[in-house]
C-alpha cells in the first residue's frame, strides 16, 4: 500500500531534518547554552566549582576599557572587509562582461582563497619582514617612501593583517557576486543598452537592485568575520598587545587569567554585537528585507 503524499511529506520533513538538526543542536546550541551559563559564574576553567556571580562579568566588560577597547583592533578588519566587498564586486562586474582571457583572470583572482590559511599567514609573515620582500618591491618601484616595519609599527600592523584577510578572501566574495551577476537575465542588460543607459547607470539601476540580497549575504559574512578576527593575528603575531582582537583577548582572559566565566560573557557580548551590527546593516543595505 502506498503512503499518501501528505504522510510522506511529514515523514520526509522529519527524516531529512532530524540528523542535521541534531548536529546543529549538539555542536552549536548546546555549547552556546553552556556558554551562557558559564558567563554568570566565575569558573576558572578547571575547578569543579562554578560560583554564581550574576551579572558581574557583564558589568566588568563594559567598565573595563582594556576589555572593550580591544574592539578597536577589529576596526581595520571591518574596514578591510568593506573594501574587500567593493573590490570583489568590481572584479565580478568586469569578469562578467565580454573580455579576453576571462577564465584566466577569474581563475587567478580566485587562487588565494584556495591556499591553506596557515600557509598564507606564513607567506605574509615573510613578506612583511622589516626590509623584506614587500619593502624591497616598493623600493624597486620607486615607492621607497612607503616602506615600513609592517608588523612592528603599531599604527600599521592591524591594517597589514587586515590586508592579509582581504587578499585571502576577496576571491570568495567575487565568485559569489559572479554567480549573482550571471543570474541576472540577459534581457535586462539588452534593454538597458537599447535605452542608451550609460555604464554606470546600468550598473546602478539595473544590476545593483538585483544584487541586494547577495551583497547582504557577503557583508554578513565579512562583518561577522571581522568582528571575530582571530586566526591571522594568532598565527602572524601570536596575538601581541597591539594586534589583540576582541576574540584574542577573550581567549587570554580564559586561559592566561583563568577566568572562564568572564571570557564566556565576552563571547556572549561578541555574539550580541555581531547580531546588532548585522541587523543595522540589513536595514541600511537591504531596506529591511530578510536575507534568507
Amino acid at each position: 500500500m502506498k503512503m499518501s503524499y501528505r504522510m510522506q511529506k511529514n515523514l520526509l520533513i522529519v527524516g531529512f531534518l532530524i540528523v542535521p538538526l541534531a548536529l546543529l543542536v549538539t555542536f552549536s546550541f548546546y555549547p552556546a547554552i553552556k556558554l551562557i551559563y558559564y558567563s554568570f559564574t566565575s569558573w576558572d576553567g578547571l575547578s569543579q566549582q562554578y560560583p554564581w556571580v550574576g551579572w558581574t562579568n557583564y558589568t566588568t566588560i563594559f567598565t573595563d576599557p582594556q576589555l572593550f577597547g580591544s574592539f578597536l583592533h577589529n576596526f581595520s578588519y571591518f574596514i578591510g572587509g568593506l573594501i574587500q566587498n567593493v573590490v570583489a564586486l568590481y572584479f565580478a562586474v568586469l569578469l562578467s562582461s565580454k573580455l579576453k582571457g576571462r577564465s584566466f583572470f577569474r581563475a587567478t583572482l580566485f587562487l588565494p582563497y584556495m591556499l591553506n590559511a596557515v600557509a598564507v599567514a606564513f607567506i605574509f609573515k615573510f613578506l612583511y619582514l622589516d626590509g623584506g620582500a614587500l619593502d624591497t618591491l616598493l623600493q624597486s618601484l620607486g615607492l621607497g617612501f612607503l616602506q615600513h616595519d609592517w608588523i612592528g609599527n603599531d599604527s600599521i600592523v592591524n591594517w597589514a593583517l587586515a590586508f592579509v584577510s582581504l587578499w585571502e578572501f576577496f576571491g570568495f566574495n567575487m565568485v559569489i557576486y559572479l554567480a549573482a551577476l550571471q543570474s541576472i537575465p540577459e534581457e535586462l542588460h539588452e534593454a538597458a543598452a537599447l535605452d542608451g543607459a550609460g555604464r554606470f547607470r546600468t550598473f546602478w539601476y539595473i544590476i545593483m537592485p538585483n544584487l541586494r540580497a547577495i551583497i547582504q549575504i557577503n557583508l554578513l559574512l565579512t562583518v561577522s568575520g571581522a568582528l571575530e578576527a582571530f586566526n591571522i593575528p594568532f598565527v602572524m603575531t601570536n596575538g601581541s598587545p597591539p594586534t589583540a582582537t576582541f576574540l584574542i583577548n577573550t581567549m587570554n582572559v580564559a586561559f592566561t587569567f583563568n577566568n572562564y566565566g568572564l571570557a564566556s560573557a565576552m563571547a556572549i557580548v561578541l555574539l550580541v554585537i555581531v547580531f546588532l551590527v548585522i541587523t543595522v546593516q540589513q536595514r541600511l543595505v537591504g531596506g529591511g528585507k530578510d536575507v534568507v
Binding site: K125, Y128, L129, D130, D149, I151, G152, D154, V157, T237, S240, P242
Partner: peptide, 11 residues
C-alpha cells in the same frame, strides 16, 4: 629606547 634590541623587535 636606546636601540639595544632587535631593530624589528616586535616581530
Amino acid at each position: 629606547q636606546k636601540g639595544f634590541v632587535e631593530h624589528d623587535f616586535k616581530n
